[in-house]
């Protein structure tokens, strides 16, 4: 459904844009229908930039992003694109205009997409969408953003996306600002949406969250893909030293770091990319070491 092909993003910085800053370089992956893909990376990995490019909030410097084979920048009518692709962001409080009531995010959708819907009919649709994200309409409608909790606000934003017949949702760090007792419920919502056939790009820095919800995983570092593929393969048998060190650093509940330290000694492991036969290098810079498990060369970074 959504396909990124050699996508890169270059920022011009300094006087007269003299210097170039490559935030994303040559990234290719796909998100299919009914599939959750996690995009995992630390700060500065370019993961949010990728999300913004897919949402057309940032321009694409190189490569193409296509939706069902159509270059998304060629879709002149943004509204038509946004009917199919929507986003939810990290900070729920900043997503609401503090001057207005929170349910204005729904009114905006009505105004732009369903101007002719009757008030009663629209109200029913909103209530239906709220119930689908497990919110009681009576509790949240008519309130101001500062009167609601982060979890409620974030769910309302998901409900907003659901009001349109979207096919792809870009969820950019949507639970990192929520409390532990509510974040899992929002995460489960994504799983519910997936069951309804939506494709979801789940951008996160938290490996355990990505692992919990996603079918496929893309690990980014400094704007490049270091490893990607089926989540169970990437997390179960990580091939790139960066992925391994990330996994070793993640705090776990029942294993202390010291126990995991043993797997930390990865420097002597030969580069999986070079170990793989020549014909497995089906994608530029990546070798397919298992079915749907790609890894980038690690030697290059050591040098």
């Amino acid at each position: 459904m959504l396909k990124l092909d050699g996508v890169s993003k270059v920022y011009r910085v300094g006087a007269f844009g003299g210097r170039e800053l490559k935030a994303v370089s040559d990234v290719s992956f796909e998100v299919g229908e009914g599939e959750v893909v996690s995009l995992i990376g630390e700060s500065g990995s370019g993961k949010s930039t990728l999300g913004r490019m897919i949402l057309r909030l940032a321009s694409v410097s190189g490569g193409t992003i296509t939706l069902d084979g159509r270059d998304i920048t060629s879709i002149k009518d943004r509204k038509e694109y946004y009917r199919q692709v929507q986003g939810v962001f990290q900070d729920p409080f900043s997503c609401y205009n503090p001057v207005f009531r929170a349910d204005r995010v729904f009114a905006m959708i009505k105004e732009q997409y369903f101007p002719r819907a009757g008030a009663d009919e629209w109200r029913k649709r909103v209530e239906g969408a709220l119930e689908s994200v497990r919110l009681d309409p009576g509790n949240v409608l008519g309130k101001y953003p500062h009167q609601l909790s982060g979890g409620q606000l974030q769910r309302m934003l998901i409900a907003r996306a659901v009001l349109l017949d979207i096919r792809l949702l870009v969820a950019d760090e949507i639970i990192s600002m929520l409390d532990a007792s509510t974040r899992i419920d929002v995460l489960n919502l994504l799983a519910d949406l997936r069951a309804r056939g939506l494709g979801i790009l789940f951008v996160t820095h938290d490996l355990s969250l990505g692992n919990y919800v996603s079918d496929r995983t893309v690990v980014l570092r400094h704007g490049k893909i270091v490893e990607m593929g089926r989540t169970d393969l990437v997390f179960g048998s990580p091939a790139h030293p960066y992925t391994r060190s990330l996994l070793a650093s993640v705090p776990r509940l029942h294993a202390k770091w010291t126990d995991a330290e043993m797997t930390d000694a990865v420097e002597d492991v030969p580069c999986a990319y070079h170990e793989a036969p020549q014909e497995s290098r089906t994608r530029p810079g990546l070798a397919e070491i298992d079915s749907d498990h790609y890894v980038a060369c690690a030697d290059k970074e050591k040098a």
């Binding site: 899992i184 692992n211 919990y212 997390f235 993640v250 509940l253």
Partner: peptide
């Protein structure tokens, strides 16, 4: 709390 290894 989701942990690495737990899938929904």
């Amino acid at each position: 709390l989701p942990e690495v290894g737990v899938r929904y």
